[in-house]
Design a protein around this nucleic acid. Structure first.
Length: 498
RNA sequence: GGCGUUAUGGUGUAACUGGUUAACACGUCGCCCUCUCAAGGCGAAGAGUCCGGGUUCGAGCCCCGGUAACGCUACCA
C-alpha cells in the first residue's frame, strides 16, 4: 500500500515539532532549516508545534529558549504557539481533549484497545524475551481480553493505556505496510515486526505517535520532513492514518547529524545546545550556513566562495534532490573556520557591535563586575580574575584539579557525578548549592574538595570569584559543556597512557 | 538478537544520461609575507570511491552477494 499523492505543491505545509525537554538542539535547527527552506521555496507555510506530552522530561524554560534560538537563526515560523494561526492551539498539552476524542474513535472502530498491564509486568516480560533472545514485543494479553473482561477492569478503576491494534485484525487483514520515503523510495515493514504501540498513556497524555499523526492531519501538514530516526516509526504512523481514514502526507527523512565517531550527535561528544553556540560567540549566519552544508542540498559546493550562502541564497538554490543520505559529521573545526570567515567579513563597527551584544554586553559585564569588585585592588586586575568568562579553552592540570587526598581516578569519577546532577539541576545559586552539597554528602566529598574541583574545571584555577555565582553568570550551557569537554579530554589522556 | 537505513581522502561535499590521471573546501604539513599570532598568498601529502563477484570497449555511478557503521526496538520524543 503506497501513498496516494494528490496534494498540490502550492499548498505545501511543513512543520517542526520540538519537545521542550532541555536546551534547544542543533538537530532541531538542522531539521528546522530544511523545513523552512522547503516552505519558502514553495510559498508554503512553516509551522512550529511544541510537543510537550512528556511530563516527566518537561523543562519549563525550554519552550522560550526554543523560540529564542530559532529566531536567532532567522528561522521565522508562520504559525506557532506564540504567533497563533488557523489550526491552533500549537502546544500539544493544550490539545489533550482532541487526542482523547480521536483515541475514542479508534477504540470504537476496533483499531485500538485498552491495556491494563502494569509497567512492572511489561518490564518483566520484556526482560524474559530479551533473555530468550526474542524480540521484545507486547504479549497481546489485553488485546485478547473479552469485552466483558475489559469492562470489568474499567469498572474496577484499573489504570490503563490505549494501544494500537496492529493488523491483521478483524477490520484489516494486511500483514505489511509499505510507505514512500521521498528521498529513498519505498520502504516496507512486516506487521509482525511492529509492536502494539501505546497511543495514550495512563496519565491521559498521548504518546508522540498519536499526537503527531492527529496534529499533522488537523494542521493540514502536507510534508513531514524529519530526522532519519523516525523511519522505523513511520509504518505505525501510516497505520494510524489508515485507522482514521485520513490521507497520508509525504515523508522525507533527513540523515542524522553525527559525532566525529559517527554515532548520533550527542552532548557528551559535541556541544549540541544552540544556547551554547550563541553564548560562545557563533554568528547565526555561520551556523545556518554550516548546517546547510550537512547532507548536501546545495548544488556545486566546489570553490571557496560557493560554500558560503545566506539564508536567502539557500532558499533560492537548495534542491531537495541533492540531499545526501549518509549521516554527516558535525565538524566543529569547520564550523569555526566558517564562523571566522563571517567574522572577518564584518565591518569593524559590526564586529564591535557583535561583541557588545554578546560576550561584552552590559548585562554580562555588569554581572561579572559585581562578582569581583571586592576582590581587586586595581581595575587592571579585572582581567586576571575573570578571564575564564571570556576564554574558550580552559584546561586545568591534574595538579590544579585533583584534591590533595584524592586520586586522579576518583576525582574524575566524582566530576562525572557532578556533571550528572548538574544537568538535572535548575541553574540558580540556591539549587546548585543544594544539589552539589547533597551529592558531596552522599559520596563523602567535603564541601571544600567538592567546590574546589568544580572551580578548577570551570575557571581553570583554584582561585576565582565565588563559584556558584560565576556559574550562574557563565550560564548552564557553557558551564556544562566545559565540564563535559574536561571529562572527555581527561578520558582521552587516560586512554593514551594505556 | 530482530527490523530498517546508509556507505567517495581524517571531515563536509563534487563528479553530465556509465567516458581521460576522482574535483573543491575544512583540517594537516611546508614555504612566502610579517615584531608575534592570526589572516592572506603559494605548494605538498592524503581516497582509487566499504569488500567480493558480474554486465560493459569502459563502472564511484548498473546487477548480485557479503561486510561495517548508524538508527529504531519505552506509558521518550
Amino acid at each position: 500500500m503506497t501513498n496516494s499523492l494528490n496534494i498540490s505543491e502550492a499548498a505545501v505545509r511543513v512543520r517542526i515539532a520540538p519537545s521542550p525537554t532541555g536546551d534547544p538542539h542543533v538537530g532541531t535547527a538542522y531539521i528546522g532549516l530544511i523545513n523552512y527552506i522547503f516552505a519558502r521555496q514553495r510559498g508554503g507555510a512553516f509551522v512550529l508545534r511544541i510537543e510537550d506530552t512528556d511530563r516527566a522530561r518537561f523543562v519549563a524554560t525550554s519552550e522560550r529558549e526554543i523560540f529564542n534560538s530559532l529566531r536567532w537563526l532567522g528561522l521565522a515560523w508562520d504559525e506557532g504557539p506564540d504567533v497563533g494561526g488557523p489550526y491552533g492551539p500549537y502546544r500539544q498539552s493544550e490539545r489533550t481533549q482532541i487526542y482523547r476524542e480521536h483515541c475514542d474513535l479508534l477504540l470504537a472502530n476496533g483499531t485500538a484497545y485498552r491495556c491494563f498491564c502494569t509497567a512492572e509486568e511489561l518490564e518483566a516480560a520484556r526482560k524474559q524475551q530479551i533473555a530468550a533472545k526474542l524480540p521484545p514485543r507486547y504479549s497481546w494479553t489485553c488485546r485478547h481480553l473479552t469485552a466483558e473482561e475489559a469492562e470489568a477492569n474499567l469498572a474496577a478503576g484499573k489504570p490503563f493505556v490505549v494501544r494500537m491494534a496492529v493488523p491483521p485484525h478483524a477490520g484489516d487483514a494486511t500483514t505489511s505496510t509499505t510507505f514512500r520515503d521521498e528521498l529513498r523510495g519505498d520502504i516496507t515493514f512486516e506487521h509482525s515486526n511492529i509492536d502494539d504501540q501505546v497511543l495514550m498513556k495512563s496519565d491521559g497524555f498521548p504518546t508522540y505517535h498519536l499526537a503527531n499523526v492527529v496534529d499533522d492531519h488537523l494542521m493540514r501538514i502536507t510534508d513531514v520532513i524529519r530526522a532519519e530516526e523516525w523511519i522505523s516509526s513511520t509504518p505505525k504512523h501510516v497505520l494510524l492514518y489508515r485507522a482514521f481514514g485520513w490521507q497520508l502526507p509525504r515523508f522525507w527523512h533527513m540523515p542524522l547529524l553525527r559525532n566525529l565517531d559517527k554515532s548520533k550527535i550527542s552532548k557528551r561528544k559535541n556541544p549540541v545546545s544552540l544556547i551554547y553556540y550563541r553564548q560562545a560567540g557563533f554568528l547565526p549566519e555561520a551556523m545556518i550556513n554550516f548546517l546547510s552544508l550537512m547532507g548536501g542540498g546545495m548544488p556545486e559546493s566546489s570553490g571557496p566562495i560557493a560554500e558560503k550562502f545566506s539564508l536567502a541564497e539557500m532558499v533560492e538554490r537548495f534542491e531537495v534532490k541533492n540531499i545526501r543520505l549518509g549521516g554527516p559529521v558535525f565538524d566543529l573545526t569547520k564550523l569555526k573556520w566558517l564562523n571566522g570567515e563571517y567574522i572577518r567579513a564584518l565591518a569593524p563597527d559590526d564586529f564591535y557591535s557583535a561583541l557588545r551584544s554578546t560576550i561584552l554586553s552590559d548585562a554580562y559585564l555588569g554581572q561579572i563586575a559585581s562578582l569581583v569588585q571586592t576582590r581587586v585592588e586595581t581595575l587592571g586586575e579585572f582581567g586576571n580574575l575573570t578571564h575564564f568568562f571570556f576564554a574558550d579553552d580552559i584546561v586545568p592540570t591534574p595538579e590544579v584539579f585533583v584534591p590533595r587526598k584524592r586520586t586522579l581516578e576518583e576525582t574524575l569519577g566524582f566530576a562525572a557525578e557532578q556533571l550528572a546532577i548538574l544537568e538535572a539541576t535548575e541553574w540558580t545559586k540556591e539549587t546548585l548549592e543544594f544539589a552539589l552539597k547533597e551529592l558531596g554528602a552522599e559520596k563523602q566529598w567535603a564541601v571544600k574538595e567538592n567546590f574546589m574541583l568544580l572551580r578548577a574545571i570551570i575557571t581553570g584555577s583554584t582561585m576565582s570569584p565565588p563559584l556558584l555565582e560565576s556559574m550562574v553568570v557563565f550560564g548552564k550551557a557553557r558551564s556544562l559543556d566545559r565540564l563535559r569537554r574536561f571529562l572527555e579530554t581527561q578520558k582521552k589522556m587516560a586512554e593514551q597512557k594505556k
